[in-house]
């Protein structure tokens, strides 16, 4: 051990390796790793049937479907409109552009509870927007989708925007010089270039949406089997002091999140590799 440390030290003259890495690992372990491991630790204390009964309870299953479905829908909406907004912000000049650009970050900066009560009020049946529709938006899955669209928008815009900015004009010009129409260039040249960024942005927004709580609880209505998202089930179980049940559901969510995280990393790794080959 001493030998390897000594050797390591010789590789660089920059000081502080042992200290900084040690501190990083310690802090990471105390704040993140140890607490997170509690979820799995507590799950193992349950019997399999007990665990299965909790996570496969119809109410829980309905919440998975709802959380997954609404996150997916919001993600798709954000991919479409987020890409258009990124395009408009990069390519066009129009009055107030700087303000619009800054505003995209609002969901990052605005507390989720604030967004939640604002959206719930706006889209409730007698709200500013809700009154124009003869069907309910707030307190239905539609309301959840709206809250999740709000939360996820900057993820897509902010990942697509820089890629679009760095996209050289040559490839578009080359496409045009070879006789492609603007629409063909867009579909065959630009979109494929943007695709990795779009997928990354979608995954980030989707991951965030799966776990989102603050902005959703106010607009969702929280009806069991209908508009109850998975994080809310955990919350309800905690309020009933059902720690075991809460932990079981949390395990399902964590596993889903980790798989998603893995997917994002694979996409990024794949994209980097693809580009470094050039």
């Amino acid at each position: 051990m001493e030998l390897t440390l000594k050797k390591r030290k010789k590789n660089t003259i920059i000081p502080g390796f042992t200290m900084t890495l040690g501190y990083t690992m310690l802090y990471l372990s105390i704040i993140v790793l140890l607490p997170l491991s509690m979820v799995f630790f507590n799950t193992f204390s349950m019997s399999w049937s007990e665990f299965w009964q909790t996570i496969a309870h119809p109410r829980a299953v309905a919440s998975y479907k709802l959380s997954f479905g609404t996150a997916l829908a919001a993600g798709v909406i954000n991919v479409i409109f987020g890409t258009i907004i990124a395009w408009v912000l990069v390519r066009y000049q129009f009055p107030g552009k700087r303000i619009v650009d800054g505003l995209v970050d609002l969901p990052f900066a605005l507390p989720t509870a604030v967004a939640g009560i604002a959206l719930a009020t706006l889209y409730s049946p007698n709200g500013w927007v809700g009154q124009f529709f003869d069907f309910k938006i707030a307190f239905t899955p539609l309301g959840i989708i709206i809250a999740l669209t709000f939360i996820g928008l900057p993820f897509v815009v902010r990942t697509v925007q820089p890629v679009l900015q760095n996209l050289g004009s040559e490839i578009e010009e080359a496409s045009a010089s070879l006789g492609a129409t603007r629409l063909q260039t867009f579909a065959k040249v630009i979109i494929p270039e943007l695709l990795p960024a779009i997928i990354t942005g979608f995954s980030l927004a989707f991951a965030r949406s799966l776990g989102e709580y603050g902005s959703v609880v106010f607009i969702a209505g929280n009806m069991p089997m209908k508009t109850e998202i998975t994080p809310l089930i955990i919350m309800t179980k905690l309020e009933q002091y059902d720690y075991v049940g809460a932990t079981a559901i949390a395990t399902v969510m964590l596993v889903a999140s980790f798989i998603l995280l893995l997917l994002i990393n694979i996409i990024q790794w794949y994209t980097n590799r693809k580009f470094s080959l050039q």
């Binding site: 990471l28 993140v32 790793l33 607490p35 997170l36 509690m38 979820v39 630790f41 507590n42 991951a207 965030r208 799966l210 776990g211 989102e212 709580y213 603050g214 998975t230 994080p231 809310l232 955990i234 919350m235 905690l238 720690y243 809460a246 932990t247 949390a250 969510m253 964590l254 999140s257 980790f258 998603l260 995280l261």
Partner: peptide, 19 residues
């Protein structure tokens, strides 16, 4: 691992400290 908290629902973040 440092990025991990981004992928965890805030509700679970609270839960682990209750546990």
């Amino acid at each position: 691992l440092i990025d991990l908290p981004f992928a965890v629902s805030p509700v679970i973040a609270g839960l682990v400290f209750i546990l």
